[in-house]
Design a protein around this nucleic acid. Sequence first.
DNA 1: CAGAATCCGTTAGGATACTG
DNA 2: CAGTATCCTAACGGATTCTG
Lengths: 112, 112
Amino acid sequence: MQAIENLPPCPVETTLLLMGDKWKVLIVRDLLSGTKRFGELKKSLNGISQKVLTSHLRTMEKNGLITRKVYAQVPPKVEYTLTEVGQSLKQVHDAMLDWGKNYQHQCNTTIN
Amino acid sequence: MQAIENLPPCPVETTLLLMGDKWKVLIVRDLLSGTKRFGELKKSLNGISQKVLTSHLRTMEKNGLITRKVYAQVPPKVEYTLTEVGQSLKQVHDAMLDWGKNYQHQCNTTIN
DNA sequence: CAGAATCCGTTAGGATACTG
DNA sequence: CAGTATCCTAACGGATTCTG
């Protein structure tokens, strides 16, 4: 793997380089529940275009975050799965999930 | 607080809305070590322009993540501090930090 | 179905100059 | 020092069309 030549010294910046993107985070969110086909991802990622989805999937594959499996059949079937490294993003995802919940709660209680 | 009208139902998307930005994450990283002045932030955020830094600080303030304290003196002195909600982003930050470290390590060992 | 290839508009963000 | 005000460009991403 490793498409990126020089990783930033700061680990946080490294993470941002690989995941510092709205769509990538949401792709991980959707793949954390299991392998998905291209069409399924496109649907659950409400609003993304195939072009953008494809390009993100490609770079995430190069970076070793996901695996792309093509079935030789017509019509085509392509499945995307998180690699082990990709799976480990669950921690980051969960932290964002928890924080988002709390923030939403804060807003609801603060509004009064 | 709450500058955002309709928070997305998905907590992850809520987080992305407030923190799904390279610079904001790095601002939080720098403020987690304590209150900082505008100039200090600009310096440690290597490469950011004042315009962008200012605008991000403003929206983060509106969103209740940071506090802005202006000292009535010449030359001006402005300090930025994480609010309690902002502090709670430490969990997200730390998750990103850990993951980045691991990824960097993966790369170094995989290169052989 | 899963894309590749174009075209195109918006805009995030950098550079610069000025100010209280 | 900590901004505000402009100007300007790269590029992200949406829409559309076509194909194996």
